Simulated scan of single mutants.
Amino acid sequence: MSVETTAGEGSGKKESRQAFLLRYIQQNHYISIDEITRLFSVTTQTARRDVMALEQMGRVRRLHGGAATITAIDPIALRQRRTENAAQKAKVAAIVADLVPDGAAIFIDTGTTCEAVAVALMSRRDLRVVTYSLRVATILSENSSFSIAVPGGFVRPVDGGVFQEDTADYVRRFKFDLAIISVSGIDDDGDICDDDHAEVAVVSAALAQSGRKILAVDSSKFGRRALVRLGSLRDVDILVTDSLPQTPLLGKVRASGVEVHT
């Protein structure tokens, strides 16, 4: 299916195509270069130029093989997350901090749970941290013994996440003792999922570089399905949560062999 006629003709053809492309990304959160070429009957080079133009205007984030919205997280929903289940997240964060030894090299994900983890880690010493969350980095920067690295790129205003096309490549330059991640949901199939393609790409890169993988979630995430699959419970070593899920997910947790801390 092509939307070339919808995108407009004549001298305004490019602008109309880019406007349609922006609306598509806003509605669907992500589009691949291949999808752009099919939708608009254009070359790969033209598709990439359109994405680069929208990125330069600050309207989208350019990723490997496509583009995503600058803000994939609803601001109201994120503010609610910071107040809802705060006690549970603090308990989860305290357990995670106990699993992190002084001097460890760690990756920390973005999100409200990982912000709570950052607060709990302030009692540690000499941590070497890579994160793409400015909020996490700001919290940890108060500890003068920590070494903190963040990638460059566009800052997502809702949660302080930093993204550009090569953020995942930046993360691949490091080796971690531990990767601490959180997700939007763990569905009843035991799949761990998130709502943002860019986050999944960065976290996947970090997991591949980590000796041990810690998944930190409060129990509200159990049974919840999100847009993008990151992997399964078998892909992490440790699950930290405030309480175990109900069946059928409980069976998936036990079958995965993941080490559970509550």
Rank of each mutant, 00 (worst) to 15 (best):
M1G: 12
V3P: 00
G8A: 05
E9S: 13
G10I: 00
S11E: 14
G12W: 08
S16M: 12
S16N: 13
F20H: 15
L22S: 06
R23F: 03
R23N: 15
R23Y: 12
I25S: 09
Q26S: 12
N28M: 04
H29G: 00
Y30T: 03
Y30D: 05
D34E: 15
T37W: 09
L39V: 01
V42M: 08
T43H: 06
R49W: 03
D50S: 04
V51F: 04
M52T: 13
L54F: 03
M57C: 01
M57H: 09
R59H: 10
R59Y: 13
V60K: 05
R62I: 03
L63W: 02
H64M: 04
G65W: 11
G66R: 07
G66M: 08
A67C: 10
A67K: 03
I70G: 01
I70F: 03
T71L: 02
A72E: 13
I73C: 05
L78M: 13
Q80H: 15
T83C: 06
A87C: 01
Q88N: 13
K89V: 09
K91N: 06
A93F: 07
A94E: 14
I95S: 11
A97K: 06
L99D: 04
V100S: 06
A104W: 08
I106L: 14
I106P: 03
F107N: 11
G111F: 04
G111I: 07
C114K: 02
A118W: 09
S123T: 14
R125D: 14
R128Q: 15
V129P: 10
R135D: 14
A137N: 06
S141P: 01
E142K: 12
E142P: 00
N143A: 11
N143W: 02
S144R: 14
S145R: 02
S145E: 08
F146H: 12
F146I: 08
S147T: 14
I148K: 08
V150Y: 04
G153E: 08
R156L: 00
D159P: 03
G160K: 10
G160Y: 05
G160L: 11
G161A: 15
V162S: 04
E165K: 11
T167M: 02
R173A: 13
R173P: 00
F176I: 07
A179Q: 07
A179Y: 07
A179E: 11
S182I: 01
S182D: 01
V183N: 06
S184Y: 06
G185H: 01
D187Y: 07
D188G: 00
D188P: 00
D191I: 00
I192L: 09
C193L: 13
C193F: 00
D194V: 01
D194M: 05
D195T: 09
D196Q: 08
H197D: 10
H197M: 15
E199Q: 10
S204W: 00
A205V: 05
A208W: 02
S210F: 04
R212V: 05
L215Y: 09
A216N: 00
S219G: 09
S219L: 02
F222H: 08
R225D: 00
R225M: 09
A226T: 04
A226E: 10
V228D: 02
L230R: 02
L230K: 02
G231Q: 04
S232C: 06
S232G: 15
S232A: 13
V236F: 01
V236E: 12
I238D: 15
L239Y: 10
V240M: 08
D242A: 03
D242G: 06
Q246N: 13
P248N: 12
L249D: 05
L249Q: 01
R254V: 14
R254I: 13
V258S: 10
